[in-house]
């Protein structure tokens, strides 16, 4: 990821990016960051990120839109909330990462490291929409079909053990909730489309 640091000065800062973030619910907290680095210190996955959470906050405020949305950082967040509960300025950093993921998904930013996380999110949402509940077996099956079936091979032992102990639900029971869930999702999307 060396090119990212070297190429910093080549990016075109986008002054509207910070405005866009500040306008999101909870996004106004971005202005409060004091760059102390507590979030990066608390993060269990920071060593795998191309920018630390502290750097992401700095890039957001400087307007480096593409850099932030192209980073693997937002997808390397495991949602453990360590940073969130420790931040001295009480910035909801985990939610902040979710927001950045939402923008990146919507606008088609495709960090190669994040491909599998994006697929899992999509398959998960599809699973809920079609069954009302999440079926682990089908979620993983569809996930592996989308990411390369060979990567599934190393999970064979685990799969057999789960199967033997009856812990894989092979025939998903469709919850009666599914029609409600679909209506709620449709209505929510209708509303989202009208948001400024």
């Amino acid at each position: 990821m060396a090119d990212i640091r070297i190429g910093l000065w080549l990016d075109q800062p986008d002054s509207h990016f910070l405005d866009e973030i500040l306008a999101m619910p909870g996004g106004e907290a971005a202005a409060a960051c004091i760059q102390c680095g507590t979030c990066s210190g608390a993060c269990p996955t920071v060593r795998f990120m191309d920018s630390s959470p502290r750097e992401i906050m700095a890039f957001v405020r400087a307007g480096y839109r593409d850099r932030v949305l192209n980073s693997n950082t937002i997808w390397m967040c495991a949602s453990c909330y360590s940073c969130y509960v420790r931040c001295p300025k009480e910035i909801k950093i985990t939610d902040f990462m979710y927001k950045l993921k939402q923008i990146a998904m919507r606008e088609g930013y495709k960090n190669p490291d994040a491909k599998r996380a994006r697929i899992l999110s999509k398959e998960f949402a599809d699973n809920v929409k079609s069954l009302g509940r999440n079926n682990e077996m089908w979620l993983l099956l569809k996930y592996f079909l989308s990411t390369g079936i060979f990567s599934a091979l190393k999970y064979t032992g685990m799969g057999l053990s789960l199967l033997r102990t009856g812990r894989l639900e092979i025939f998903p029971k469709k919850s009666k909730s599914v029609s409600d869930v679909r209506k709620i999702i449709a209505k929510s999307r209708e509303e989202a489309a009208m948001r400024p």
Binding site: S79, M105, L120, S177, V178, D180, V181, I185, S188
Partner: peptide, 25 residues
């Protein structure tokens, strides 16, 4: 009765209103 998936963390990458809506059912 007839509960549905909470949405977990994966759904939050979609849209937070949608995620909270299905959880709130």
């Amino acid at each position: 009765e007839d509960w549905n998936c909470c949405g977990a963390t994966a759904y939050m990458s979609y849209d937070h209103v949608e995620a909270f809506s299905i959880a709130s059912r």
